[in-house]
């Protein structure tokens, strides 16, 4: 069974094909060029060089979020269209889980972060137990300072993983029980996504089709937030 993984949740675009337990190919580009310019040429090139026809793919795995709103939709629209044509299942994987998956079998606690603009990050906390990734804290959007405070006050050792670690590197380096892994672990990877998806697909968890999978944004759009605030003010004023 071949699975195509697509991750466009942060700046890096990453795609991979896994066949059962083997990684066949992976392509990651971590530059500012848009996902729209990178993603399809990367899939096209990677499959070409690997002698894989898109019609050989059995399952599509896609990062469902949270992350860059537009980035998520580019990956999701691509996944949906491929799945639509070939009537394939789509497995959705959380962006923070994918990053945690980069730290496979690590014995420390793992906290994945993605930039959520200004001083906020999307965050999820995980741990490997008996070869399985276990969620300690559900994905959420938090202030980076509050997160650092929380982790530094815990009695555990933490690996902080994700592109966003570089944005806050100066602060993070000051905390003894927070560790930053090598650069190769700090980008979302199609291979990590693919492995997690393979596992979920075999257990039939988080399996969708092109009609019912959608990005998980965690946050409302600014216009909706403002609208709700306005409505609340009007109601409170009464």
């Amino acid at each position: 069974m071949k699975i195509l993984g697509i991750d466009t949740s942060s700046m890096a675009t990453s795609v991979a094909v896994l066949e059962d337990n083997k990684l066949i190919c992976e392509y990651t580009i971590n530059t500012k060029k848009t996902h729209s310019q990178k993603l399809m040429p990367m899939i096209e090139n990677m499959l070409n060089i690997s002698d894989i026809n898109i019609n050989e793919i059995d399952v599509i795995a896609v990062c469902e979020g949270p992350g860059s709103f537009t980035g998520l939709r580019i990956g999701m629209a691509t996944a949906k269209a491929i799945a639509h044509v070939n009537k394939l299942p789509i497995v959705g994987i959380n962006s923070v889980e994918i990053l945690a998956g980069n730290m496979n079998l690590c014995d420390k606690n793992i906290c994945s972060i993605l930039d959520a603009q200004r001083t906020k990050v999307y965050m999820g906390q995980y741990k490997f137990e008996n070869n399985e990734l276990i969620e300690i804290k559900n994905v959420d959007v938090v202030e980076i300072d509050e997160l650092i405070e929380e982790l530094s006050n815990s009695n555990e050792e933490w690996i902080l993983v994700g592109e966003a670690v570089y944005k806050y590197e100066d602060k993070l380096r000051l905390v003894d029980n927070i560790h930053i892994p090598a650069p190769s672990h700090n980008v979302s990877k199609g291979s990590s996504l693919g492995s997690l998806a393979m596992n979920k697909y075999n257990k039939n968890i988080g399996v969708y089709d092109c009609y019912n999978i959608n990005p998980i944004y965690i946050r409302k759009s600014q216009a909706e937030v403002e609208y709700e605030e306005k409505m609340k003010r009007l109601n409170d004023g009464k």
């Binding site: 729209s36 399809m40 939709r73 580019i74 629209a77 691509t78 949906k80 269209a81 491929i82």
Partner: peptide
């Protein structure tokens, strides 16, 4: 953002 949904979808349709 709106254009990119239809465009990304159409590109992947054409490719597949």
């Amino acid at each position: 953002g709106a254009l990119l949904v239809g465009l990304s979808h159409a590109k992947a349709l054409a490719f597949t």
